[in-house]
Design a protein around this nucleic acid. Structure first.
Lengths: 217, 217
DNA sequence: TGTTCATTTCTTGTATACAATTTCAAAATC
DNA sequence: GATTTTGAAATTGTATACAAGAAATGAACA
């Protein structure tokens, strides 16, 4: 890992944290990291600041930075907020979405469906993300779009776990199709509700997985 | 302006930008600012980074940082998103709010009402903010609360303008009372709609002011 | 043995020095 | 006269040096 610039350091660290390389409360040593990345402390500190703002680490003055892995409560809150943001995107998209975008959604669903049949989780995951990003975009509100995308990104590792819930994928596909339907019918309230439920279910499934994990592990 | 630390520099600059001291596209000179604040470039750059993350300035590599004052379109988008966030807070608060918090809301409204009668815009403004912050808090979702508060803060200067719209204050007070009512009745959908409309109106009023300003100015 | 205080070490925060890139302007070329 | 080229000045990005504050170690004392 030699001679990366400040920006790429930030995203590399972000990946690393999201991947789970660090535990909650772990301290990130500026000096250590700077030699690991082969840069001085200055650009490294800038990278850490970026991560602070995205909530992945906590900075305590004169003490250092500590990784903040969200606990069950915060995770549920994150999913809950994601559900609300998606609902808002859906509400706007219902009246603003273009025909071309509707076709894009349908195509993403088709690819997803095939991925389910062929048992290709990566392909499914990728096009599932694509599906949701299209809706964010078609909200016609750049600010909302960006915020939704940011949270979407933050929840990515946890969404992934959900793929392992038996029977969830076909169910999820049905929901997607229902979402496209109400969007193409131009019904804001239904679109909002469909998307809210769709994401909320993800949160619930994840929560149950968490609980089971704790009980059995 | 002597010897402030990095954190306070950030908030001071933030205030300054929100106050309108800089125009859209203005470049912020690191060296100049560092002597103004009486610090070296290192902490000043950290301050600028923070502002970048909150969207107030844009950082172009090797070119510098530039102030990003939102234009009419982005402002409408910001208000639109604020309306959605408040609606979400209201939806959750309707089922989660405590009796004590309801009393707090009523009290904030009482003070607001008095402020309207005595023509004290500052007092009105302060307690209006208090009203909304209580609702954020009572959403029972810390993540949502923080995000709402952040956007609320960002829109503060524009909300202020709205005070000058004739007849808006009494109208706004009525809406507040209606909001408390549906919250205390525990009706999520109504609470969401009431809050969404309440904020959306603010956006509309502001937009009309903007248009008038451009036509007459 | 346990507690408190002082000293040392380590880490973060800030200043300064240097390197790399861009911008601006003037000179050269067509 | 317009356009390209080249070089100087200015500005950002990075490294290093220094200052200030926290943690840790150990000695003195109860």
């Amino acid at each position: 890992m030699n001679q990366r610039r400040a920006d790429s350091i930030a995203s590399e660290l972000e990946e690393s944290i999201l991947r789970g390389d660090y535990k909650d409360g772990d301290r990130l040593d500026e000096t250590k990291l700077s030699v690991e990345f082969g840069v001085s402390r200055t650009p490294l500190r800038e990278a850490l600041q970026k991560l602070t703002l995205s909530g992945l680490i906590e900075h305590i003055p004169r003490r250092g930075v500590f990784v903040r892995q969200p606990g069950p409560v915060e995770l549920m809150e994150l999913f809950e907020m994601m559900a609300e943001l998606e609902a808002s995107c859906g509400r706007f998209a219902a009246t603003r979405i273009s025909e071309a975008a509707l076709d894009e959604l349908r195509e993403a669903n088709t690819v997803c469906q095939k991925a389910v049949e062929n048992n290709e989780p990566d392909e499914y995951f990728k096009n599932n993300e694509r599906f949701h990003r299209i809706i964010y975009r078609e909200s016609g509100n750049r600010v909302l779009e960006q915020e939704a995308a940011r949270l979407h990104q933050r929840l990515r590792p946890y969404r992934r776990v959900q793929l392992q819930v038996r029977g969830r994928l076909p169910e999820s596909m049905n929901e997607h199709e229902q979402i496209v339907k109400v969007l193409s019918d131009g019904r804001p309230e239904q679109a909002a509700n469909a998307l809210r439920d769709h994401v909320a279910v993800q949160g619930d499934k994840f929560y149950h997985l968490l609980v089971n994990l704790k009980e059995t592990g």
